[in-house]
């Protein structure tokens, strides 16, 4: 200890001695005399700050107003069916009698609601195993260039416009379904297959994020216990990512539920309760797309379509809510 203190003393003394001999002569700018008054007065910067904050806040408010306007307008027109035209809400939700031109007792949207949910759920069910497999492949099995290639392919898949998917559906899927199952080739199955491809990249990329978020140590410690790769994946990776995979699937479903044109081109557009997967049907979006131009603003047939739009909007809010719910729990 004494030795150490001596050393310390030496170091300090050396350092202090060195301090006293600055070797270069200093020339440079002098500090300015601070004008104390300026410290208490607003300046150009104060004004800039107010301006910048105000301007950007305005942009935010604009977006807020926009969403309120969308919900307000669609809500107002969508509710007109029930308020002005006195259509019973239960009739609208559960009846399959859709012929709004014939009066308020023929505004049953059940067939479209069921079809919308059917294509959405089926597409998600088919896409999920593929998405998980691709995501596992990209995070657990390969690395480097191959991941990047697959990733940019997936991004490309997201980028392909939905009408192009609709067109491929018409060219490839419809004839294939017709050849295998007979009938027209239009229907839930065709729409489902198209939506499967469309939601695949959405679910996959979010699942990849989920897997990447799991700390490497968890995998290592599992491997250190002698677990095989699959055991690690099954017991550690999939379990830890469970809630985020659910979120990914819901995002995919939201995309499928709201997709309009690709579905409208492939589903046949007949407002019938689907009794099998290969008969023509209609979803909320396909009906909106094909009929909005054929009705007159303010009439019951038009209001009924707005009610379908309102339903879409509500479902979109529900999907959002579910994502938040899972986020909180997970």
């Amino acid at each position: 200890m004494a030795k150490k203190e001596q050393d310390l003393q030496q170091v300090v003394e050396d350092a202090l001695a060195e301090q006293k001999v600055p070797h270069v002569k200093f020339k440079g700018i002098d500090p300015r005399n601070i004008d104390v008054d300026r410290l208490t007065k607003p300046s150009k910067e104060t004004r800039q700050e107010r301006w910048g904050k105000g301007l950007t806040f305005l942009a935010i408010i604009l977006i807020g107003v926009l969403i309120v306007a969308i919900i307000g307008f669609v809500g107002m027109h969508g509710l007109a069916t029930f308020i002005d035209n006195k259509v019973n809400v239960f009739h609208f939700l559960f009846s399959t009698d859709w012929n709004p031109g014939a009066g308020k007792n023929h505004v049953g949207a059940a067939a479209m609601i069921v079809t919308s949910f059917a294509v959405t759920l089926l597409a998600a069910i088919i896409a999920t195993p593929f998405s998980i497999a691709v995501a596992l492949f990209m995070t657990e099995y390969v690395s480097g260039k191959r991941v990047q290639i697959l990733q940019s392919f997936m991004e490309l898949l997201v980028g392909i416009p939905s009408v192009v998917y609709g067109f491929i559906g018409l060219m490839v899927v419809v004839p294939a379904v017709r050849a295998v199952f007979g009938g027209t080739g239009f229907g839930i199955l065709t729409a489902t297959l198209i939506l499967f491809v469309m939601v695949l990249p959405t679910i996959t990329s979010l699942t990849v994020d989920a897997f990447k978020a799991i700390p490497k140590e968890l995998r290592k410690s599992s491997a250190a216990l002698g677990a095989t790769k699959w055991q690690t994946i099954y017991h550690v990776v999939l379990r830890a990512a469970r809630s985020r995979i659910m979120t990914a699937i819901i995002f995919g479903m939201a995309r499928a539920f709201g997709e309009a044109l690709a579905v409208q081109m492939a589903i046949g557009n007949a407002v019938l309760m689907p009794y099998n997967l290969v008969s023509p049907a209609a979803t909320l979006t396909s009906q909106l797309t094909s009929q909005m131009g054929n009705t007159v603003m303010g009439t019951l047939p038009n209001n009924a379509l707005w009610s379908l739009a309102l339903l879409l909007l509500i479902m979109s809010l529900v999907f959002n809510f579910l994502v938040h719910l899972i986020g909180k729990k997970g």
């Binding site: 977006i63 969403i67 306007a69 969308i70 669609v74 997709e259 909007l313 809010l317």
Partner: peptide
Amino acid sequence: QLIRTTIEILSSLPSIVVGLFGYLLFVV
């Protein structure tokens, strides 16, 4: 938080709904 949620909702709205809103507000 509210603003962020709002933007999320806007981003997940089906584009056909956005289009119909545009029709209602601007076109009509």
